[in-house]
Every structure is written in structure tokens, then in C-alpha cells.
Simulated scan of single mutants.
Amino acid sequence: MEIKNITGTRGSITVQIDDKTIIITGELTVTPVFYADADSIKNWESPHENAKISEDDKLEIIRLIEEKTKDAKVPIVFD
């Protein structure tokens, strides 16, 4: 798994991983830190919406996102 791109708004981030995309909800604070909701990681976006994300893949996605953004202007932290 490789993160290609992460974009976001105040209430969600869109993460491109390999050839798939996932939208993760959360909240951007004034700190600034984006607190992501790990429970929102369930399915990929279209055209892969029927592919469920396993618990192992979910943990790997969280690890990759936190690692990639730890030194960013807006780090992403999962709660």
C-alpha cells in the first residue's frame, strides 16, 4: 500500500492509496491538527465501493497516514 495523495477540508480528508480512494471524516482544529475518525474507514470510494476494508488494512491505512503527515503543517491523528 502506498499513499499517493492526501487532500482535505475542515470536516474530511480524501486519501488516494494505490488506485483507490477513501474519504475519512474528522475535524480540523486551530492547532492545526486534523483529528480523523478511524470508524469512518469502511469502504473505498467509487468504483471500488463494494470492496470492504479489512481491519488489518484499516490499521495499515492509519499507520501510513500518520507516518506520512507527522512532520506536515497539518498532521493527521486518529482517535
Results as ranks from 00 to 15, higher is better:
Arg63Ala: 12
Asn43Leu: 11
Glu66Asn: 02
Glu27His: 11
Asp37Tyr: 08
Glu45Val: 14
Gly8Arg: 07
Glu60Ile: 13
Thr31Cys: 08
Gln16Met: 09
Asp79Arg: 13
Asp79Val: 15
Asp37Lys: 08
Pro47Trp: 01
Asp39Trp: 03
Ile23Asp: 05
Lys4Val: 14
Thr9Arg: 04
Phe78Glu: 03
Gln16Ser: 10
Leu59Lys: 15
Asn43Trp: 08
Ile62Tyr: 01
Val74Ser: 05
Ile62Gln: 03
Ile6Leu: 07
Lys70Ala: 11
Lys70Phe: 10
Lys73Arg: 11
Asp57Lys: 12
Asp37Gly: 04
Asp37Met: 08
Pro32Lys: 06
Thr9Asn: 05
Lys20Gln: 05
Thr14Met: 08
Phe78Gly: 03
Asp37Arg: 10
Ser40Val: 09
Asp19Asn: 13
Thr25Gly: 03
Ala72Trp: 15
Ser40Pro: 04
Leu64Tyr: 02
Glu2Trp: 04
Glu67Asn: 15
Asn50Arg: 08
Ile61Trp: 02
Lys52Tyr: 09
Ala38Ser: 15
Ile13Val: 15
Leu59Ala: 13
Asp71Cys: 02
Ser46His: 09
Asp79Lys: 12
Ile65Met: 06
Ser54Val: 12
Leu59Met: 15
Ile62Ala: 12
Ile3Asp: 02
Pro47Tyr: 03
Thr21Met: 06
Asn43Pro: 00
Met1Ala: 15
Phe34Glu: 00
Val30Asp: 13
Gly8Asn: 04
Gly26Leu: 08
Trp44Cys: 03
Lys73Pro: 03
Ile76Tyr: 04
Asp18Glu: 15
Ile62Val: 15
Glu45His: 12
Pro47Gln: 02
Gly11Lys: 11
Pro32Trp: 14
Leu64Pro: 00
Pro32Asn: 06
Glu55Leu: 13
Arg63Tyr: 13
Thr69Arg: 08
Ser40His: 01
Ile24Pro: 00
Lys70Arg: 13
Phe34Leu: 01
Ile23Asn: 10
Glu66Gly: 05
Lys42His: 05
Trp44Pro: 00
Asp71Ser: 13
Ile41Met: 06
